[in-house]
């Protein structure tokens, strides 16, 4: 039997895969948070609720309308993104001129309302979502469920596509310019308020997409995003919100660290990310990829 430090190899790789999957969700969520914060100056506390809404949208569409997973993968983020746009137009728009704290409090209240309503209607216990790709592969050193492999690859592609969209396209250039200096970009005749709305919709859709991907792995429940968003805050503090690539690397990296901790010292697996945050704050307070400000 192959093993390192008396840890059986299949267990090690199994946990690392799980860590990678969690990391994929951290990356997608922290990416959205960073992009939204850059444009709106709002830390979007509803991000966990949007992730939950994505999963719920997919589940409701499957059970009520028998819309398959692959269609939900496109439809759910669209629906949740539109919902986000409505929230931005109705509420968030009115508080941009205020201190950041008010955006934080407003979105916290919204998250309570959304999660509370779903908990009230569907209870706290989760509903299962059947895996869209059954089966798996024996890789020799471990068994790889096909769907989980797909999630890691899909998340990576989505993250890189987002990076490409923001760093390498014309729309992305407008976005970055508007983050730097909205007044100047407006003077060039670009509709900045619309850009802001679009950004919020996109960031929220990204969270919803993560939720759809997570549905077959976790149970679909009203509170599935409420703890996750707290961990993602820590991820954002560790990575700093300065760079898109930084968010992706930090997300995946912390997922892996968490997975490794589950193998080496399981009781600490819940807290390890917060410990990393404490260390980063001591050594590099602005975050690994952040500009000190």
């Amino acid at each position: 039997m192959l093993d390192i430090f008396s840890i059986p190899l299949p267990a090690l790789f199994g946990q690392l895969l799980l860590g990678l999957i969690n990391g994929a969700f951290y990356a997608m969520l922290s990416l959205g948070l960073a992009v939204i914060f850059g444009m709106l100056n709002v830390i979007n506390f509803t991000h966990g609720a949007m992730y939950m809404l994505g999963a719920f949208a997919a589940w409701l569409m499957l059970t009520n309308l028998s819309i398959p997973f692959w269609a939900s993968l496109v439809l759910a983020p669209l629906i949740v993104g539109l919902f986000g746009i409505v929230i931005e137009r109705l509420l968030l728009k009115r508080i941009y001129h205020l201190d950041h704290l008010y955006g934080f409090l407003l979105t916290f209240g919204l998250a309570l309302v959304i999660e509370g309503l779903f908990q009230w209607r569907w209870g706290s216990s989760g509903a299962p979502y059947p895996a869209p790709i059954p089966g798996g592969y024996n890789l020799g050193f471990m068994f790889m469920p096909a769907y989980r492999g797909f999630v890691v690859v899909a998340a990576l592609v989505i993250c890189l596509a987002t990076w490409y969209g923001i760093e390498r396209t014309r729309l992305g250039a407008y976005l970055r310019a508007a983050t730097e200096n909205p007044t100047l970009v407006r003077a060039f005749g670009i509709n900045v308020p619309r850009l802001i709305t679009l950004t919020y919709g996109l960031g929220v859709a990204l969270a919803a997409l993560a939720g759809v991907l997570a549905a077959p792995i976790q149970q679909v429940s009203a509170l599935m995003g409420s703890n996750l968003v707290l961990v993602v805050f820590a991820v954002v503090v560790i990575g700093g919100m300065g760079s898109i690539m930084g968010s992706i690397v930090t997300g995946f990296g912390l997922g892996l660290i968490e997975g490794l901790t589950k193998v080496v010292y399981p009781p600490a697996s819940n807290t390890v990310i917060f410990v990393v945050m404490a260390i980063v704050l001591m050594v590099k307070p602005a975050g690994l990829f952040g500009q000190s400000k």
């Binding site: 407003l106 209240g109 998250a111 309302v113 509370g116």
Partner: peptide
């Protein structure tokens, strides 16, 4: 009201931030 208290609390948050800071 059970879980609905959370919804009410959240709604109070929203109303206060929007109108009675």
């Amino acid at each position: 009201f059970g879980e609905f208290v959370l919804v009410i609390q959240g709604a109070i948050f929203v109303v206060i931030v929007m109108a009675f800071r």
